[in-house]
């Protein structure tokens, strides 16, 4: 419960700020974007797919509106369980701020590592994203995609455990640039991004390690097909670097996202997060519920 109240404490600040600004923007209406174009919420809180952020700003606010999204995601892997909850606010379809709290339950692996059964790594992620060029939806007659840059500051509260594994930092900051383009005629949304990071397993296992302690570029991307305007099928991939020396590798997923209204979406995916500490790839099911406006 303490954990939950902490989450609310963190999540409430951006929501309260958002609501204050929203009241000013409310006269301009709300949820003005087209269905699904706010995307879903990534496990790190930013608007996008599930693993990779999009250049689109989260929520349904247009240039004179504020939008937002709150989400709860669970990823059940062979040997671990990741839970992530958070919220994001999109200001005037230009700036997005986000927060996510992740809990990574090591289940039986915790016992094997001497951490205790169900030892859970927790991480808070504070994110910001700014649209710098283009428009993914309306520039159908131009090649330029929508381009955004973002930052994610991650605080992991497991410094002692990580130090024992030879991991130097329990805090780190990722920087990314991402480009998104919706090809409406082909019903395809393409997204590519580069992330400069030294995170191990997106930061859950800290930052840097025996194999390096400098930010390295990693690729992330996704491709989604719009079956209908409220239903998308797609794939995502995200490369990860092996700073610790435990064969960390690329994560990918195949997803279905359903947007019954602008206020809710449900995403279900098959994920393969690659090797996480113990031998063998970690595969499983990803489910995410998002509430948005």
């Amino acid at each position: 419960m303490a954990n939950l109240s902490k989450v609310f404490k963190y999540a409430l600040a951006p929501i309260a700020a958002g609501l204050a600004l929203t009241s000013a923007a409310w006269s301009q209406g709300y949820s003005g974007k087209l269905l699904a174009t706010g995307g879903v919420s990534t496990v790190e809180g930013a608007g996008g797919g599930g693993l990779a952020p999009w250049a689109l700003i989260t929520g349904y606010g247009t240039e004179n509106q504020i939008g937002g999204a709150a989400f709860a995601t669970i990823v059940n892997l062979d040997d671990y369980r990741l839970r992530s909850v958070g919220a994001a606010v999109g200001f005037y379809d230009r700036v997005e701020i986000s927060f996510a709290q992740q809990a990574f339950d090591t289940r039986d692996v915790g016992t094997a590592l001497g951490l205790g059964r169900g030892y859970t790594f927790k991480q808070n992620i504070f994110g910001a994203k700014v649209k710098i060029a283009g428009d993914a939806i309306y520039d159908q007659d131009r090649l330029l995609p929508q381009i955004s840059v973002g930052v994610q500051h991650k605080q992991n509260d497991n410094g002692n455990v990580l130090a024992a594994l030879g991991i130097p930092h329990d805090k780190g900051t990722d920087y990314y640039i991402t480009a998104s383009k919706l090809f409406i005629d082909q019903r395809l949304l393409a997204n590519v991004g580069v992330r400069f990071t030294k995170a191990n397993q997106i930061g859950i296992l800290g930052f840097g390690g025996p194999n390096g302690d400098k930010l390295k570029p990693q690729f992330e991307g996704s491709l989604a097909f719009l079956v209908r305007r409220d239903l998308a099928l797609g794939v995502e991939a995200r490369t990860k670097r092996d700073f610790i020396g435990l064969d960390e590798s690329t994560a990918w997923d195949a997803f279905v996202a359903w947007f019954p209204t602008k206020n809710a979406s449900l995403t279900v995916a098959y994920v393969d997060l690659g090797r996480i500490v113990i031998p063998g790839r970690q595969r499983g099911v990803y489910a995410s519920l998002q509430l948005s406006f």
Binding site: Q28, G29, S31, G32, K33, L34, L35, T62, E63, N64, Q65, D93, R187, L226, V227, R228, R229
Partner: peptide, 25 residues
């Protein structure tokens, strides 16, 4: 006219096309 006005018309068009049985593609 702002984006949300433009989109409101686009959504009405989508509803009208749905009602007329126009395919997704």
């Amino acid at each position: 006219i702002k984006t949300h006005h433009f989109n409101a018309l686009a959504e009405d068009l989508q509803r009208a096309m749905d009602a007329a049985g126009v395919s997704q593609s």
